[in-house]
Nucleic acid binder design. Structure first.
Lengths: 198, 198
DNA sequence: TTGACAGCAGAACGCTCGTTCTTTAGGATG
DNA sequence: CATCCTAAAGAACGAGCGTTCTGCTGTCAA
């Protein structure tokens, strides 16, 4: 799971750090960490962080600032899974952030959310009412699901190429393939999907 | 939405800060922010942050450290759907903002994420590799998609009733309906779905 | 053509931060 | 009972940090 598991004591320190980060969304200075950890010496705080770094829970920016690593956010939902014999490997899920946001969105400033209408992509598992997470850019690869602008309308389709021409392929046999004349304007690329039940 | 909307320029600065935070998970020093913002003066960085604070995007800890606020993580949500005609760029429209986590997760303590395996629910738009957001409880309604424990394995199916008996119905004709003998153990109810492309 | 202001650069300063080194107290080991 | 080791405390220090002030442009309105 990690390079080297932290000791029981370090695990406590880690928990306190995680709690602090959860409410402040930043790692404080050594002085402030003294209070958080309940100890009095800055040097020991550094020693703790150094160990947590070795264990893979925190990292440093190029300019020496402490930041949480992927592992820092890993959630132990493994326990419930293990006991029931879940068929999915636990290791696969370990690194994922419980805060979905971080998982889905790499570039917040160019990412937007668009509700999906219609069922033209139903065979791709995209249904009406789903929310498409779209990264705005005008370059896409063949096979990407893109949001394209066709006749002043947004449409969600798979980008494909046919005889040297870009086409937009729906994932529903009831819908026609769109063959845009002239240039094809791409608004963004689908990077995620969110669905809320009930 | 916010106390006062940031100017166009400040919005750019905010975007850069959000992107930086997305990859480093911390707000850097003024000196480092100079590089991020592409400016040369620390005092101007402070002026920018002061304005972003007024607009409600960043806050300060009691010891003066800059931290992101809730608004910082809000995502733009397009008003119109993907296929509803809309010539205006989505970024321009004054849509809603929301935080994905808050939207999907009502009860953090009882909500867990389980990767989906297999394609037994493909007709419900649930595909292998999707992540199911599951609220842990043992009561569900007919028609709910539930995570049930059958033969010590987790399985995702629609809960139904047949001749007074609870059954688990897959959304794929290739899979059989599960008719558990005795009691049916329900682990939780599907409240959301997340998919990441690429 | 003057002035006001927005947008930024640059310097100056005191204080805090991270780092390193030394010391200490208690437990385990032998 | 000597000696390790762990878990801290504490001091000392220089670099870097945030803050404040002043200066320098360009723009626009009067």
């Amino acid at each position: 799971m990690s390079d080297s598991d932290p000791s029981a004591r370090d695990a406590e320190y880690l928990a306190k750090l995680q709690d602090y980060y959860a409410s402040w969304k930043s790692i404080p200075s050594y002085a402030a960490l003294c209070e958080v950890f309940g100890i009095a010496s800055k040097s020991w705080v550094k020693a703790i962080l150094d160990r947590l770094e070795k264990a893979g829970f925190v990292e440093r920016t190029p300019d020496g600032m402490w930041i949480p690593s992927r592992q820092f956010f890993a959630r132990p939902f493994a326990e419930s899974a293990v006991q029931a014999g879940m068929p999915v490997a636990v290791s696969e899920t370990q690194g994922d952030y419980f805060v979905i946001d971080e998982m889905l969105i790499d570039k917040p400033s160019t990412t937007t959310m668009i509700p999906v209408k219609g069922d033209s992509m139903i065979d791709a598992g995209i249904r009406e009412g789903d929310i498409a997470v779209v990264e705005k850019r005008n370059l896409a690869n063949i096979g990407d699901i893109v949001v394209a602008i066709v006749d002043n309308e947004f449409t969600l389709k798979t980008l494909d190429k046919e005889r040297g021409q870009y086409i937009l392929r729906p994932a529903n046999p009831a819908f026609p393939v769109i063959r845009p004349q002239g240039t094809l304007e791409i608004f963004g690329v689908l990077v995620g999907l969110i669905r809320k039940y009930k």
